[in-house]
Design a binder for these strands. Structure first.
Lengths: 160, 160
DNA sequence: TGAACTCGGATAGAAAATATCCGAGACAAG
DNA sequence: CTTGTCTCGGATATTTTCTATCCGAGTTCA
């Protein structure tokens, strides 16, 4: 059970975008985070398809958040990058083999699948409760309130 | 974030083993569950290395649980197959790029990593609360109390 | 009108998971 | 005590997924 490394880049990118009302190009985000430019752009496309960010083309284009950062949950970002299907997929083992149960008596999911789904729900709810704004505030607090200011300054300084 | 399919086989195998005090060969478990024999055996080796099952060699050998099923959590089985490292691994993006934070000021984990770790903890605790005995009881209840009896009968009937 | 800069999907390479086979060791029977 | 058969265990191919990259389509500003 391994999560795509792009999830980390996407979360950091969303936190950065929350500090700018103007479009930020993918290459700029990649430079700030020290990540591969082309691959970073690919993940931002996934965020765009999920409706989390909006892309603007042209010379002054780039990416912007579609909603206030307080209304974007970490769960949305993770699912946009890593997919929204659950980690555990029941292959219906109970229906196979010499003691296979007929499909007609399998209206409810398997008990094992139910336990795994409950765990996934607990995981999802924990991430749904955390917003991008919460993450930005926590990062700011870790840096004595200078981190987000530095990001804003860097974004305006490098904007031609 | 995808979980190995072997997790499902391992959980079903542990539930089956909880119904037998005598060793059950890997081939027998694979037949009962309708899974590839060789690959099923490989996953049982992982359970053996984790100390969840004990292997007995020889003609009447096979696998047995090392502890009562009520003292084996689903989390242990999942971690034995899928690994115990967390799904999210922080690459320390905050230390990279033009605004990189020096490592000396990064004693605490990144705020994003903390949020992901909290979600993983919620997931782990949900699975830690569920034992193999609980799963067996739930499966039994779904089948009107005949499923585990059928398993016990099949195990003794096919035991030469 | 033109030029430069942006995103977007299609394309190679690397890593991991899946599935399998054969040898080492152990118990039971003769 | 020897033999034979059955067991597990690690080492080996194949497929799938993830990682990383490049070039074309479209848009905005000068």
């Amino acid at each position: 059970m391994k999560m795509s490394s792009g999830v980390e880049w996407a979360l950091h990118s969303c936190v950065t975008l929350s500090q700018s009302h103007e479009p930020v190009p993918a290459a700029r985000l990649a430079e700030l985070h020290g990540t591969p430019p082309a691959y970073t752009a690919k993940h931002l496309q996934a965020l765009s398809r999920a409706g989390i960010v909006r892309s603007t083309m042209g010379q002054v284009g780039g990416y912007t958040l579609t909603r206030p950062a307080s209304e974007i949950s970490a769960l949305e970002v993770v699912q946009a990058i890593d997919g929204d299907e659950p980690a555990y997929r029941c292959a219906e083992i109970r229906q196979r083999g010499p003691l296979g149960i007929p499909a007609e008596r399998c209206s409810r999911p398997c008990a094992i699948a139910r336990a795994m789904a409950a765990a996934q729900d607990a995981w999802s709810h924990a991430l749904a409760r955390t917003s991008i704004a919460d993450l930005a505030a926590d990062i700011d607090a870790d840096s004595d309130g200078t981190a987000m200011l530095d990001v804003r300054n860097w974004l305006t300084a490098t904007r031609n």
